[in-house]
Design a protein around this nucleic acid. Structure first.
Lengths: 189, 189
DNA sequence: AGCTGTTTTTGATATTTATCAAATTATCGG
DNA sequence: CCGATAATTTGATAAATATCAAAAACAGCT
């Protein structure tokens, strides 16, 4: 079965016709480590599903790269603001590993919404899940100390630490690389 | 016309039957300043629309109240995590002013999703808008200084400063009341 | 193994923000 | 207008984190 369909079954059942229509419109693309899925200034016109690999969203501030999210296997990916508004993206999306993604254009997905109520329902449900995750991350980021954020990350997503360089993790946590390095040292003792 | 229907027209058109079904299921409730729309520990089983007034979502941490969002006229309101998961809420929702809200139960709204594809579409679109707002707030909160957050707030939502006590604004910005007070002093000069 | 460029750690210091305590100012009912 | 209560500001100090510079550790390549 198609990996996207497989994953969607976790959220809501699809009838076979909808499955087929969706499958037909999903295109597989492979990327190498350090490739860009999206560069800032470009409009993000696709919704993606990451089958294999890892990527990050980052933007540039005062010449520094600020990674504000990571994506791994079985995550839906897009540059949300750009995708929704049709404005040029201010963020870049870059692969951290050799990866495989499935892509569907906004136009095609929107047409599927019209044709299949249940596909729009799936997206509604996925938005709910992602909103909850972001809300939790927001509250944590704002009200926890750097050390707490690090231990949370270890428990919540230890694979990130294995697969991502430290400088990207530190900006994800909203701290400098030096501070993260010192926190780790504390933590190890 | 019903104020909720009126507002929904900003997002997507509704047919008259859907309008009627929705209107019939919306109940108007008035509250006084300091009343609670939801107390922590209770499950949030309604989706609300704030017609008039103001409220805040807050939770308690180390004996302190942390306000993490505000709602004003024409905002949709719910304790999102509790509403979606059916788990007891960890946040409280309290009115900052005498207010009027419209309420629909999760059960009734879910039934309307089945009956009217376009109502589910509306909610999907509203989620997109709220996700974008949260995403922007997340990035700002994490990577801007306290002074920048304050000046942003002045430009983005000056009404908050008129209608909300300082201690609540400071926790919303993720800083202490004293720090906010000092920032304002700087800013005024 | 040795070279090279990159990533991570360490050290010294500066800056930002929090904390605690007290003083001042604003608000509201009588 | 007065007094009580709450909200905001001010001051002194402590804690957390950033910054800048350099050293150490690591990774890929030959």
């Amino acid at each position: 079965m198609h990996p996207v369909i497989q994953h969607l079954k976790n959220y809501y059942p699809l009838n076979p016709t909808a499955e087929n229509m969706l499958t037909e419109r999903l295109a597989s693309i492979t990327f190498s480590k350090n490739d860009f899925l999206l560069k800032k200034g470009r409009v993000c016109q696709h919704f993606y599903f990451l089958e294999k690999g890892a990527l990050r969203g980052f933007y540039e501030l005062d010449g520094k790269e600020i990674t504000h999210w990571f994506g791994f296997e079985n995550n839906f990916i897009t540059s949300f603001h750009s995708y929704i508004t049709g404005q040029p993206s201010i963020e870049n999306i870059q692969f951290l590993e050799d990866s495989t993604v499935w892509a569907i254009s906004k136009k095609e997905l929107t047409e599927l919404f019209d044709a299949f109520h249940e596909i729009e329902r799936l997206v509604r449900i996925i938005y709910e899940q992602y909103y909850m995750q972001l809300e939790e991350r927001y509250v944590n980021a704002q009200f926890k100390t750097a050390a707490e954020l690090y231990t949370d990350l270890i428990h919540r997503a230890p694979h990130i630490l294995q697969r991502v360089p430290l400088g990207q993790i530190s900006s994800y946590l909203g701290i400098t690389q030096e501070t993260l390095s010192r926190i780790r040292k504390q933590h190890a003792q």
